[in-house]
């Protein structure tokens, strides 16, 4: 415990998340050893495959983190992702990916306008926009999966391998490096932290808070759209509700990585670890053929348990 107290408080969640990831791997390996006598979890190819699937969640979480750092939240991720995928497959050709990303850009701009200029709580505005996007897509597709196919470029990004490593993983790493740079080395990144800590003080010290908050939402929209384009490539087409399973895990990954849900604190490497943790937890649970019910219970318990270990929030009296 003395070693733990000497570590900087900001690094503690990251280390705990890392330790927990190792623990999950060990439990999973012990399980596979005792049942089949093999160790699939420790094979690089298997881990690569899991991280390839995890890269979609990773992209969503990266964008989500930008928004959470400002003290807001983006609930429009599921249908931003789905709309981008549907638009990209519908446009097709060389413009498929730019078209998908522009959906994310537009969603981000509208979210940013609603939250920073109109000052509607992000929780409800992004939720409303999510419903509108769902409505647009249902009206366009008739509620069925569209027939359009993913373009070769999308298939390449999502499925191909470069030097034995999935290209999707490279995309995730590229976005990660970009976000890390943004957060640590640019005025924009530092402004995100400032706004999340105390928006009033940030505004008084000359930060253009409206532009920065809009920037955070645009980042989230672009990341979700990129995840949508890749996911459409991975499954060769877009389908209804393809983004539904990404919202809550993305928030969970950001928070498990030590980012404060009310904004102002957190490091990107933590979010990265949070995504790896959730992806591996899911993969170990599916190896164990855990039924959905127990899966949900374990999932919830792990989040609560880890947050309790991280050290609890400060008392109001402090």
């Amino acid at each position: 415990m003395t070693a733990l107290t000497r570590i900087r408080p900001a690094d503690r969640p990251i280390l705990i998340a890392f330790g927990f990831t190792i623990l999950i791997l060990l439990i999973g390996t012990a399980y596979t050893l005792s049942t089949t006598g093999t160790v699939p979890l420790l094979q690089p190819s298997y881990l690569m495959q899991q991280l390839q699937i995890g890269s979609f969640l990773g992209l969503c979480a990266a964008g989500m983190m930008l928004v959470i750092l400002t003290g807001h939240i983006d609930l429009s991720v599921p249908w931003t992702l789905t709309s981008a995928a549907m638009v990209a497959t519908a446009i097709g050709g060389p413009w498929a990916i730019p078209a998908g990303l522009s959906v994310g850009l537009c969603v981000g701009l509208v979210n940013g306008f609603g939250v920073s200029v109109l000052r509607v709580p992000a929780m409800i505005f992004t939720l409303g926009l999510d419903t509108v996007l769902r409505g647009l897509m249902v009206a366009r597709t008739g509620g069925f999966a569209p027939q359009d196919q993913a373009t070769p470029a999308m298939l390449y990004l999502a499925k191909a391998k470069l030097l034995g490593v999935p290209v999707a993983l490279f995309v995730w790493i590229a976005v990660s490096v970009l976000v890390t740079f943004l957060l640590a080395r640019t005025t924009f990144g530092r402004s995100l932290y400032a706004i999340g800590t105390k928006e009033r003080a940030a505004w008084l010290s000359g930060i253009r808070t409206r532009a920065v908050v809009t920037g955070a939402f645009v980042g989230s929209g672009l990341c979700a759209a990129l995840a949508g384009v890749l996911l459409a490539g991975y499954s060769a087409k877009a389908y209804q509700g393809m983004g539904n399973s990404f919202l809550l895990p993305a928030i969970a990954a950001v928070v498990l990585g030590g980012t404060h849900i009310l904004g102002g604190r957190g490091r990107y490497i933590g979010t990265f670890m949070g995504v790896v943790l959730i992806v591996l937890l899911n993969s170990v649970l599916s190896i164990m053929q855990m039924p959905e019910a127990l899966r949900q219970i374990i999932y919830g318990t792990v989040i609560i348990g880890m947050l309790l270990i991280y050290g609890r929030g400060t008392r109001i009296s402090e």
């Binding site: 809550l248 928030i251 969970a252 928070v255 849900i261 009310l262 039924p291 959905e292 019910a293 127990l294 899966r295 949900q296 219970i297 374990i298 999932y299 919830g300 318990t301 989040i303 609560i304 947050l307 309790l308 609890r312 929030g313 400060t314 008392r315």
Partner: peptide, 26 residues
Amino acid sequence: YGRLQPIIATLATGAIAIGLALLIRP
């Protein structure tokens, strides 16, 4: 007593509640 943010604590307990519901009514 856990001093967690309500929004994230209930996100997790919500998953637990759904899990229990699935156990009761598969």
